[in-house]
């Protein structure tokens, strides 16, 4: 019973929700990337690898240039480069998109540690200086609102950016011609092609966007939240983002809610010193929750119709 009351007490603290939002954003960016990619019909389970690559090159660039903005750009490009590999292999060569995704994840894990050794020797990667990190900014005025001010307006720049990207993704996907095209390509590429839409171009764009967003999340992790690269520091977040995407039924808003739930789980877990449950059992919760959702408790989640199917021009 103490655990329940502890958690209830915790739920009414602004600090918890501030931590929840930050943890959610780490997942939200790759999840949005996944939504865009899969809406165009390309399965993407490579967010983990793209994030890790972004984290690594973000740190490398920041150490070299002492400029977090430029480093964030490099991280996004690195993520996009990985995404391009996925795009070429799965769109051009029509490879199995899941295999390609797994390969990217293994590749990124191996490559980053290999390069750490090669670039920095068997020494410490080095720490990015305090002033060279992506800053936390309080929004003047708004940050003084009781409760909400702390939760929403005392955050890292990336958190604000992610919330804007969330809205943008929703608007673009569902309110613009481009969004219509992306969804058409993901649902019925043959028809889209007939209607004059360049299926390949849309898919390339969508996959590369997912890399940009995953890389941004990697930058947040490596030069926003921490200030160095640690091998495998993404720790499976790309996979949880994948779960969030499905949890959210391939919609930006749904993915965001799912990320908030996972973020809340993480935030409660981080405050485990006052909760008297095995932290390991607590850690299982997000995954069990996803399974329950998949089992249909909150309704069926159906992927885009052509998700995972390579497009062969002129077929059928």
């Amino acid at each position: 019973m103490t655990a329940v009351t502890d958690i209830l007490h915790l739920l009414f603290t602004a600090n918890l929700w501030q931590a929840t939002l930050a943890a959610a954003v780490l997942l939200l960016l790759p999840a949005l990337g996944g939504v865009i990619s899969e809406r165009s019909g390309v399965v993407n389970i490579a967010m983990e690898g793209m994030m890790l690559t972004g984290a690594f090159f973000g740190v490398v660039a920041d150490l070299a240039w002492h400029n977090p903005l430029a480093a964030t750009g490099v991280a996004m490009l690195a993520g996009a480069l990985m995404a391009t590999v996925h795009a070429v292999v799965s769109i051009q060569f029509r490879a199995d998109q899941i295999v390609s995704g797994i390969a990217i994840n293994i590749f990124a894990a191996g490559l980053t540690v290999f390069l750490v050794n090669r670039i920095y020797g068997l020494q410490d990667v080095g720490h990015v200086g305090q002033s060279e990190l992506i800053p936390y900014i309080n929004v003047p005025g708004l940050d003084q609102i009781p409760f909400l001010g702390k939760v929403l307006f005392q955050q890292n720049v990336i958190v604000y950016a992610a919330l804007i990207i969330l809205v943008l993704t929703h608007v673009v996907l569902f309110r613009t011609r481009l969004g219509l095209r992306i969804r058409a390509v993901g649902e019925h590429p043959q028809a889209a092609d007939t209607a004059g839409i360049n299926v390949f171009a849309i898919r390339y764009g969508a996959v590369i966007t997912s890399g940009l967003l995953s890389g941004l999340s990697g930058a947040f992790l490596a030069i926003g939240i921490s200030n160095t690269f640690v091998p495998n520091m993404t720790d499976g977040r790309g996979y949880i983002a994948l779960a969030a995407m499905i949890f959210g039924k391939w919609t930006p808003g749904g993915a965001f809610i799912a990320c908030l739930i996972f973020g809340l789980g993480q935030a409660i877990y981080d405050n485990n010193s006052i909760i008297h449950v095995s932290p390991y059992l607590l850690s299982m919760l997000p995954y069990l929750l996803t399974l329950i959702v998949l089992a249909g408790v909150v309704g069926r989640s159906t992927p885009p119709a052509a998700d995972g199917l390579p497009y062969v021009p002129g077929s059928e």
């Binding site: 600090n15 931590a19 921490s226 520091m233 720790d235 993480q266 485990n272 010193s273």
Partner: peptide, 13 residues
């Protein structure tokens, strides 16, 4: 290995 996790615990403290 995951700095974000430790940061979460630290923020709680």
């Amino acid at each position: 290995t995951d700095p974000a996790k430790c940061q979460g615990v630290a923020k709680g403290q």
